[in-house]
Amino acid sequence: MSDLGALSYYLSIKVRQGKEALTLDQSAYASKLLERSDMAKCKLCVTPMEEQLKLTKASTMAKIDATLYQSIVGGLRYLVHTRPDITFIVGYVSRFMADPREDHWAAMKRLLCYVKGTVHQGIVFPKTGGSRL
């Protein structure tokens, strides 16, 4: 075995090790996800979902491309590893992967606008008491 030095990038997760904290983020992955969903130039949102959002499987809105919807939801599910702030809404839009409709897509587009505005957020583990996390 050989020492490759400090970990800096692993499975699309950027690792920054500072004197005060260890930070994990997926900003590059989030940017690629936004490009793949054609949301790279969207307006920013300050919240990941509308207040009192009600989605249902019995929606009468028009159907959308299920493959694209499933692909974007899958990408968002991977992004949750370093973004606990979007966990609830990602789980919520995941419920409609079998038969996605326009209202489900609108909720996901709002989430993607939120991700664009918070693309550099991640998890911070502050160091306490020496080298312990």
Rank of each mutant, 00 (worst) to 15 (best):
Ser2Ala: 08
Leu4Met: 12
Gly5Asn: 13
Tyr10Gln: 07
Leu11Val: 11
Ser12Pro: 00
Ile13Asn: 01
Ile13Trp: 00
Lys14Gln: 15
Lys14Ser: 15
Gln17Tyr: 00
Gln17Met: 03
Gln17Arg: 11
Gly18Ile: 00
Lys19Trp: 03
Glu20Asp: 14
Ala21Asp: 14
Leu22Ile: 15
Thr23Tyr: 11
Leu24Asp: 06
Leu24Ala: 09
Asp25Arg: 08
Ser27Asn: 09
Ser27Ile: 05
Ala28Met: 06
Tyr29Leu: 13
Ser31Met: 03
Lys32Asn: 12
Lys32Asp: 13
Lys32Thr: 08
Arg36Trp: 04
Arg36Ser: 15
Met39Pro: 05
Met39Ser: 06
Met39Cys: 11
Lys43Asp: 06
Lys43Pro: 02
Lys43Gln: 12
Cys45Gln: 15
Val46Trp: 01
Val46Gly: 13
Thr47Tyr: 06
Thr47Ser: 09
Pro48Trp: 14
Pro48Leu: 14
Met49Pro: 08
Met49Gly: 03
Met49Phe: 11
Glu50Gln: 04
Gln52Met: 05
Leu53Val: 10
Lys54Asp: 08
Lys54Gly: 03
Thr56His: 01
Lys57Gln: 06
Ala58Glu: 13
Ala58Met: 03
Ala58Trp: 00
Ser59Pro: 13
Ser59Gly: 13
Met61Asp: 06
Ala62Trp: 04
Ala62Val: 10
Lys63Tyr: 08
Asp65Cys: 14
Asp65Pro: 11
Ala66Phe: 00
Ala66Thr: 12
Thr67Phe: 02
Tyr69Asp: 07
Gly74Val: 10
Leu76Thr: 07
Leu76Ser: 07
Arg77Gln: 15
Leu79Val: 07
Leu79Ala: 10
Val80Cys: 12
His81Ala: 05
His81Arg: 04
Thr82Ala: 11
Thr82Trp: 03
Arg83Phe: 08
Arg83Gly: 08
Pro84Phe: 08
Pro84Asn: 04
Asp85Pro: 14
Asp85Arg: 06
Ile86Thr: 02
Thr87Ser: 11
Ile89Ala: 01
Ile89Thr: 09
Val90Phe: 14
Tyr92Gly: 04
Val93Ile: 14
Val93Asp: 02
Ser94Cys: 06
Ser94Asn: 02
Ser94Phe: 02
Arg95Pro: 02
Arg95Lys: 05
Arg95Cys: 01
Ala98Ser: 07
Pro100Lys: 07
Arg101Met: 06
Glu102Ile: 01
His104Phe: 07
Trp105Lys: 00
Trp105His: 02
Trp105Cys: 03
Trp105Asp: 03
Trp105Pro: 00
Ala106Ile: 11
Ala106Gln: 15
Ala107Arg: 04
Lys109Val: 05
Lys109Asp: 03
Leu111Val: 00
Cys113Trp: 08
Cys113Glu: 09
Cys113Ala: 15
Cys113Asp: 09
Cys113Gly: 13
Val115Leu: 13
Lys116Val: 09
Lys116Phe: 10
Thr118Leu: 10
Val119Trp: 01
His120Asn: 14
Gln121Gly: 00
Gly122Trp: 02
Gly122Asn: 05
Ile123Ser: 09
Val124His: 12
Val124Ile: 15
Val124Ala: 15
Pro126Thr: 08
Pro126Ser: 10
Lys127Val: 01
Lys127His: 11
Lys127Leu: 08
Thr128Glu: 07
Gly129Gln: 14
Gly129Cys: 09
Gly129Met: 03
Gly130Asn: 14
Gly130Thr: 12
Arg132Thr: 15
Arg132Tyr: 09
